[in-house]
């Protein structure tokens, strides 16, 4: 059975693009529209990898990462940020919150898949 990736992004088109790329590579994909939905999905599905946007309504990516890391069950689940942002300050904030890595949009499909495979190995 393939590994499961939880994708969290408020853009439906971005979620569909990620779905296409990840499903095409054999991953099961669970989607959420914001950080709060992401936390709900997390407890239901126990994913192998999480990919989250930063700028989202209701709960942003930082909030999701901080809350996820407070739960011992998800303390070591790889969390990759996928964002249009690239500033060192924002990356540092994500790192301190507990993120595993950072991918700058627009993503290259092969690069994304490579890092997802690497962190979920």
């Amino acid at each position: 059975m393939g590994k499961t990736v939880l994708t969290i992004d408020d853009s439906r088109m971005m979620r569909e693009m990620l779905l296409m790329v990840l499903q095409g590579a054999g991953f099961n994909v669970v989607q959420a529209e914001d950080g709060k939905q992401g936390l709900d999905a997390l407890s239901r599905t126990n994913p192998d990898v999480i990919i989250t946007d930063i700028n989202m309504p209701v709960m942003d990516g930082y909030g999701f990462i901080e809350n996820a890391r407070m739960d011992a069950r998800y303390r070591s689940t790889p969390i990759l940020v996928l964002s249009t942002e690239s500033s060192p300050e924002k990356k540092q904030r994500a790192r301190q919150a507990g993120a595993t890595g950072w991918i700058v949009k627009p993503f290259q499909a092969e690069s994304l898949l490579e890092v997802v495979r690497r962190v979920s190995a």
Partner: peptide
């Protein structure tokens, strides 16, 4: 953004 597509693992 010249950083677009870049991947960084912390």
């Amino acid at each position: 953004d010249p950083a677009a597509g870049s991947v960084e693992l912390f």
